[in-house]
Design a binder for these strands. Structure first.
Length: 815
RNA sequence: GCCGGAAUGGCGGAAUUGGUAUACGCGCACGACUCAAAAUCGUGUUCCUUUUAGGAUUGAGGGUUCAAGUCCCUCUUCCGGCACCA
């Protein structure tokens, strides 16, 4: 009798698999179908990974392993996304270099991943910080630059005072930097930008050709925030040479525009403010400027404002309307100015009340009275708007008024996006240098492709500076260079790329990780194509996932990749919370370290099963150590059953029950894996094992199919718990690995039952059960039911009105 | 406020898409083994009652149907995303 001891068998098989290279993907393999399975590559931070991170990797590993058994040429790689703020901040805190911090973290991550037994093709691994890799990140950036999609602009960016760097909109969550939780301020700096807004429509449309869950697609669509409307010009009363452009989705309400509001940062504020109002406006601008983004958003949505003293002319009514300045108008959206229609917009209504401005209603609800104590937001019938529009429905009026304004050249159709261009520079050390040289004569010039990579110099001092300059600016022998165009002295760009740069194209590098003459060989790009299944966190939906789709679509347009979308299917796993239902975090001390679980004796297999069995993969669930006990017991029970079998004499009898049990499990597990219903697949195996135990208690391994049954069960278990499966497979007398065995099919003939349990309902209530031979017809079943004394009692003296029979399942009698 | 998702035993969760609600696991109870405990094995476990039986039950209320966790209407709560976006 042997004991199940994961500590002994797991390291043994991990070493054996590494040696035999069973996880290697084969380029251009013609024999088998290919399958590209990706899980997001991790950011190697100092604190290591907890079991929550392992959920994604475990699920990916199960899928990859099963696809191999189904005969696919599986590409299942892993790499490290090592540039970026957390590593750098960690290095600063611990007084080590980011290079060293990265190396240590990667070593730790690697050993964590290996201890889980994941079947990655490690020969395709890399770090985004490898010069061989970021050479191509820089090269790809220059494609954007040469296509005019990377440009410099001086804008007020989100500035993290802790990390001392500018951030993209996507990195600011509730007014805070998503990496360090510091409240973000605004700072005016010259930034590199990527024109992601050029791809806004494509990013929405592209979702139609991929299989993403609706919550992911919806989130991207609402982040892009497309809205259709018109840009209307308002003339200024005293300065006829100037006009004020506003964006509106409701041109039908233009007759109700009784004032205008500009964002405090609007460029026209200074020009239009009258002498008398100068002091008040100046005062107002100063107060709003000191507020952080968070304060400005959360200050009870107040409707503060100041009158500029100037007036505009409403193009529809030709009336003179006052121009105000208010912080509820955002410079970053539309034109940074609005026509205020207090009768039909809640915010404008509040502003009008606050500052005693007139309210005019131009739409009447189709039903009921107009309530003039609140704004009316809905659709209805036009009133007070000139004879050509009055009486029209508001939607018809919207079209007609827009058309008329366009005809008189007072408006244009316009589509607005909430998405902004991607702020792409960081004033930090630990990132890819932006491969640009600033020449006094030629401006920003691309580094020659042949001079790539622009190596990140190793320096002693890499702390961020408060003045908005990257620490690279202080390294004069690196900064000073010559212009690639004219050879005159010039300066290197000192900003670096955000950590989203390297991750925007890494999946392409897996296809050809060691190529030194191209980011990937076009033939390999063609062979591997797109990622078939991409598993990752929901938190990346509007960050990495959106960014990398944008890069890919641009590459497609440039002819660099053969596919229009990078990821054919995306699935997002749910978060594993701590046992108390809160988020696992190092500061709370509730993090569960996979290594500790493994070393405590449960082993990787039981942990893999527990993570998977916990709940549906896409559901956020608290971790439960008790589940781990359950999955360990399950493995142990399987081990013991095999052990008992090996100690028994070879069987000779036939027993179809074995065929039935195993076929049932094979069917359930196969179907569940197809639908990624991992938890029920494990439940099916547990049920199967229970049934095997019951059978064993009856026949004591006398049946001759036990060898086949146990082997098949091992195959089914192997994607989930590979170590124990491999060990048992060998103990059952097999020489070669179980991991490349053919995935077990199932035969329907074994799944057929010879008796059916038929539920009998009377007036919708369950009143009895009949155990009958299968496929009886309705009359036979009714007859059987009527002869059942229990059912007779219920039918006594009542008339049978209706009979509904669902074959082999249910008989419903209505009396 | 808007857009998604969810609510099922003491707990995590099943339910072939309208057909026997509570699979599987945890926990708990009892029993076996043991000097004892742990481990292991076996049995039971939705709730209520007047317990050879009956009744109720999938967040609440209504509806459709022979039949509803599943479909329709109204509402509550929770989670995620967006949010002064004109």
């Amino acid at each position: 009798m042997s004991r199940y001891n994961p500590k002994e068998i797991e390291p043994k098989w991990q070493a054996a698999w590494a040696k035999s290279g069973i996880s290697k993907a084969v380029d251009f393999d013609a024999k088998r179908e290919k399958y590209v399975m990706l899980t997001e590559f991790p950011y190697p931070s100092g604190s290591g990974m907890h079991i929550g991170h392992m959920r994604e990797y475990t699920l990916g590993d199960i899928m990859a392993r099963q696809k191999r058994m189904l005969g696919y040429n599986v590409l299942f790689p892993m790499a490290y996304d090592a540039f970026g703020l957390p590593t750098e901040n960690y290095a600063i805190k611990n007084h080590i270099s980011p290079q060293q911090a990265t190396e240590e973290a990667v070593a730790n991550f690697q050993s964590q991943l290996e201890s889980m037994g994941f079947s990655y093709d490690w020969s395709r691994s890399f770090k985004t910080t490898d010069p061989d890799y970021y050479k191509w990140t820089q090269w790809l950036f220059l494609r954007f630059f040469k296509a005019g999609l990377a440009y410099q602009a001086e804008i007020a960016v989100n500035w993290c005072p802790f990390c001392k760097t500018g951030l993209s909109n996507e990195e600011v969550i509730n007014g805070r930097h998503e990496r360090c939780d510091t409240v973000v301020t605004k700072k005016l700096i010259k930034q590199w930008m990527l024109r992601i807004t050029d791809y806004a429509d494509r990013l929405i449309k592209g979702l139609e050709m991929v299989d993403y869950p609706s919550r992911i697609a919806d989130q991207q669509i609402s982040w892009i925030g497309k809205s259709q409307g018109a840009e209307v010009s308002f003339e200024l009363e005293d300065q006829k040479d100037l006009s004020l452009k506003v964006f509106t989705t409701r041109p039908d309400t233009i007759y109700g525009a009784t004032f205008m509001v500009l964002a405090p940062e609007h460029p026209l504020v200074e020009q239009i403010t009258t002498e008398e109002m100068k002091a008040a406006v100046k005062n107002y601008l100063e107060t709003t400027a000191t507020k952080s983004e968070l304060e400005r958003q959360s200050a009870d949505k107040n409707k503060s404002g100041v009158f500029s003293g100037a007036y505009a002319l409403n193009p529809a009514t030709k009336e003179k309307i006052p121009i105000w300045i208010g912080e509820y108008i955002l410079m970053g959206y539309g034109t940074g100015a609005i026509m205020a229609v207090p009768g039909h917009d809640e915010r404008d209504f509040e502003f009008a009340q606050e500052h005693n401005l007139p309210v005019k209603y131009v739409i009447q609800p189709a039903k009921g009275e107009l309530d003039t104590s609140i704004p009316f937001i809905g659709e209805g019938t036009i009133i007070n708007s000139g004879s050509q529009y009055n009486g029209l429905s508001s939607s018809d009026a919207r079209e007609k008024i827009t058309a008329d304004l366009i005809k008189s050249k007072q408006a244009n159709e316009r589509v607005n996006y909430r998405l902004h261009d991607w702020i792409f520079s960081r004033q930090r050390y630990w990132g890819e240098p932006i491969p640009i040289i600033h020449c006094p004569k030629h401006g920003a010039v691309a580094v020659n492709d042949s001079d790539l990579p622009v190596l990140l110099p190793e320096v002693k001092n890499y702390q961020p500076t408060a003045d908005g300059q990257s620490p690279l600016a202080e390294i004069s022998d690196w900064v000073n260079t010559t212009c690639p165009t004219c050879g005159l002295p010039a300066r290197r760009e000192t900003d670096t790329m955000p950590n989203w740069a390297g991750s925007s194209w890494y999946y392409l590098r897996y296809f050809d990780p060691h190529n030194s003459s191209a980011f990937a060989d076009p033939e390999k790009l063609k062979y591997w194509g797109s990622v078939d299944l991409y598993l990752g966190g929901m938190e990346h939906t509007t960050l990495h996932l959106l960014y990398s789709r944008f890069w890919h679509q641009f590459f497609f347009d440039q002819g660099l990749v053969p596919t229009p979308e990078p990821y054919l299917a995306r699935r997002g796993q749910g978060i594993v919370l701590a046992a108390d239902g809160t988020k696992m975090s190092k500061s709370k001390g509730n993090v569960v370290d996979p290594k500790e679980v493994i070393d405590s004796g449960y082993g990787a297999d039981a942990l893999r099963l527990a993570i998977t069995f916990l709940a549906p993969y896409d559901q956020t669930t608290p971790w439960s150590p008790e589940t781990l006990g359950g999955t360990y017991r399950f493995l142990q029970r399987f081990w013991t059953l095999v052990d008992q079998y090996l100690a028994s004499a070879p069987g000779t009898n036939g027993n179809p029950e074995l065929k039935k049990i195993i076929n049932r499990v094979a069917k359930q597990v196969s179907q569940d894996l197809e639908q990624m219903s991992f938890n029920t697949a494990i439940a099916a195996m547990m049920e199967g094992l229970n049934a095997l135990y019951k059978l064993k208690a009856e026949d004591h391994f006398k049946a001759k199919d036990w060898q086949w049954a146990l082997e098949t069960f091992t195959k089914l278990l192997s994607p989930f718990a590979p170590h124990i499966s491999e060990e048992i497979w060998q103990r059952l007398g097999n020489q070669h690995t179980v991991l490349l065995e053919k995935w077990p099919g199932y035969e329907e003939r074994w799944l057929k039952q010879d008796t059916a349990t038929i539920a009998v309902q009377i007036n919708g209530k369950l009143r009895g059960e009949l155990s009958l031979a299968i496929n009886k017809n309705q009359d036979e079943v009714v007859e059987a039911a009527l002869s059942d004394p229990k059912i007779q009692a219920y039918l006594m003296g009542r008339e049978l009105k209706r009979i509904i029979y669902i074959p082999n399942k249910l008989l419903s009698l209505v009396v």
